[in-house]
Design a protein around this nucleic acid. Sequence first.
DNA 1: TCACTATATCTATATTTGTCGATATGCTAT
DNA 2: ATAGCATATCGACAAATATAGATATAGTGA
Lengths: 118, 118
Amino acid sequence: MHITEPTQLFKSLSDQTRLRCLSLLVQQGELCVCELTYALDLPQPKISHHLGNLRKAGLVSDRKMGLWIYYQIHPELAQWVVDMLSISIQGIQTHEPFASDTKQLMNMPNRPENLYSA
Amino acid sequence: MHITEPTQLFKSLSDQTRLRCLSLLVQQGELCVCELTYALDLPQPKISHHLGNLRKAGLVSDRKMGLWIYYQIHPELAQWVVDMLSISIQGIQTHEPFASDTKQLMNMPNRPENLYSA
DNA sequence: TCACTATATCTATATTTGTCGATATGCTAT
DNA sequence: ATAGCATATCGACAAATATAGATATAGTGA
């Protein structure tokens, strides 16, 4: 499913939880739900719910790997959306909680990528 | 008043009426409420209401000139916001109703700028 | 002062959206 | 088969938001 309406795109960006997830995904490439849950320190159903919103909006794609589901920025976004996201994420890195989220993710013990990738 | 939270910024962009107004303002520089009302073909109170939202969010500024109130993109926006807006507005120009709005504005008879500026 | 125009605000209502907790699905390993 | 973990979805409720229409404010010109 692709983004049809620009309005819908910005609606997806207009929630703090979703923006925090997107910020990490833009920076880190691919993350599973448990990593986002840890980094943002929020209940898992809440994270899943907002990832579902981003998925429906066509902003992220997911792939299943064993027990984990990895999300990434959708690889087929229109170029202007990619540029817009990139500029925005960079712009908000000076704001909280976006900066702390990245640090928190780096402190996560036993990240699934470390166990199963490579 | 300045934009404090990125979330609030995107919330302002997430409404079709506001996005249409911003699109015209980015392109045209300065417009009064009656021009926006004509271009978008929507009730005046609705336009005013959404302009109020954009004003509170710090995205636009207004100045009174006689009977008219002119709005423009706020001249003191953070650079990343200016860039983000510019890329976004350019990106959505291929979508409706944004393209038609510009045409409709160009067809407006007796635009106040033509009468009072220069 | 009066009538007219442009704009903003108010009130009520309807809709959308977020949140929470519980539960369901589905994979993995024993 | 059973237990345990990761994730998604569901149902109820609360909060935020958009809309419409009526009305208020304020500038202009006769």
